[in-house]
Amino acid sequence: MIYLYQGVALLEINELKQIVEALLIATPEPLTEARFHTCLGDSGSKIPLQEVIRELASDYEKSGRAFFIKEVAGGYQIVTNAEFESYIKGLFSKSGKLRLSQAALETLAIVSYKQPVTRNDIESIRGVSSDSSLRTLLDRKLLEIRGREDSPGRALLYRTSTEFLQYFGLNSVKDLPRLREVEDILAEDDNELV
């Protein structure tokens, strides 16, 4: 089968699938549509990555691979199936991935909904000093510093990173579940009291 786009023969679909597969294996970050086109040069500018990915993904599924293609952080990446976790753990010195503490998760939740935020913004919501949580999250690259506030004190501004999206399996921060409004919480509390 020849890949046709608007009547023009571009690349054979099997070749295309192989190219995309090679890119997915070698990519250090999620493979985006734009990056894919850069890699293909002129010949690939009209090929929609999404379609090739869909073909490749269905191949993987049919042949029962131990991995699949995940849409994450605005691109695609190869990820192992959940059932192999217990074996994969053996590859790492620590027992699998570390989990984030409650404090770190709270801090991360505040940053992801309110970004960009200062440490002060975070602490005034949590009511506790959040220095060590911020440090952990920066060390693990889930957060990054993005400039300074444009006001006296010029406090550092924090944002979530690409690694954050990967860690939580999100395509973009817009995919986060909506934060409940205060009114909803109050309405629920009223019901509880009745």
Binding site: A26, P28, Q77, V79
Partner: peptide
């Protein structure tokens, strides 16, 4: 986090 934990990325 719990849902994503068992999935490992291919990192070259």
């Amino acid at each position: 986090e719990r849902f994503e934990r068992p999935h490992y990325y291919h990192i070259p």
